[in-house]
């Protein structure tokens, strides 16, 4: 197809200022249009590329939408049973202490079925990096209520909205684990705008640099959208996320250099 506004004279390899990293496998992602997983994957791979540690990195993917992350990330990976990624990562890091080890998990995986593994890996201060994608819903199984689903939020198993009296409250697992002494760096980010993406990438870089120094567990939550599960367009879902998710899951650093950051009180 002829491109109307192409400036063909500058389309030369030496003028490329951004392209998808080769550490992303060149195949279509299985994610829905507009889903933050793809961006989170790419930022992680960009950091590995910039640090030149891909050959020393072992990743663990979860069960959930990103179960096939190992098909997209061009590094050695293991697919864990549902919720068990931190247990795998614990053993891998202990057995390969000079390697970089990360888990990539969703909210159901990390904060429901895998709560015990998450908390104990954090509490032991394993020198691993946990990347936690929180979209407040079980995307892969068809939009069921997640541990992080907001009060009143509709899902296929809370069709009239999450009733906290009978269904429990959303679990702020990131704040919860931030209080554990084994955890060194905790931050909450997003990937829906260029600025947020840049901050997320910086956070991932910081976490992996800290892993090199054996500082303890680093935990990055990425609040993301699930336009299919939320039944919105991608653009609507990003707006809804800003208006509803961010007030509850406030973005920013929660623990830095092993010290908790005082967050402004919300109502």
């Amino acid at each position: 197809m002829e491109e109307q506004f192409a400036k063909t004279e500058i389309r030369k390899p030496e003028n490329i200022v951004y392209k998808k990293t080769d550490l992303m496998v060149d195949r279509p992602l299985s994610y829905c249009p507009g889903c933050g997983h793809g961006t989170a994957h790419r930022m992680l791979m960009e950091v590995l590329e910039e640090m030149d540690i891909a050959d020393k990195t072992i990743g663990v993917s979860p069960v959930g939408c990103s179960v096939l992350a190992y098909d997209f990330l061009n590094i050695d990976m293991l697919g864990a049973a549902h919720g068990r990624a931190p247990a795998l990562a614990t053993a891998i890091k202990r057995l390969w202490p000079n390697h970089f080890v990360f888990t990539y998990q969703g909210d159901g995986d990390l904060a429901a079925i895998g709560t015990a593994e998450t908390i104990h890996a954090c509490n032991r201060g394993e020198n691993i990096t946990i990347i936690f994608i929180n979209n407040g819903i079980y995307g892969m199984t068809g939009g069921q209520m997640a541990p992080t689903t907001l009060p009143g939020m509709r899902s296929s198993t809370s069709p009239y909205g999450r009733d906290v009296a009978t269904m429990g409250h959303p679990l702020k697992i990131t704040e919860l684990i931030s209080h554990l002494p084994g955890v060194y760096y905790v931050t909450r980010q997003a990937v829906h705008t260029p600025n947020h993406v840049r901050k997320t990438k910086k956070a991932i870089r910081k976490a992996l640099e800290l892993q090199k120094e054996n500082k303890g567990l680093c935990f990055i939550e990425i609040v993301s959208n699930c336009n299919s599960g939320w039944k919105m367009t991608p653009v609507q879902s990003n707006k809804w996320m800003e208006e509803n998710m961010f007030p509850f899951y406030q973005l920013g650093d929660i623990k830095v250099d092993g010290k908790l950051i005082e967050l402004p009180k919300t109502s």
């Binding site: 389309r11 951004y18 392209k19 998808k20 997983h37 793809g38």
Partner: peptide
């Protein structure tokens, strides 16, 4: 645009 594209389909040139 390229940074925020979930599918990484945009390549950017600058000169």
């Amino acid at each position: 645009c390229a940074i925020v594209c979930p599918d990484g389909v945009i390549t950017v040139y600058r000169a």
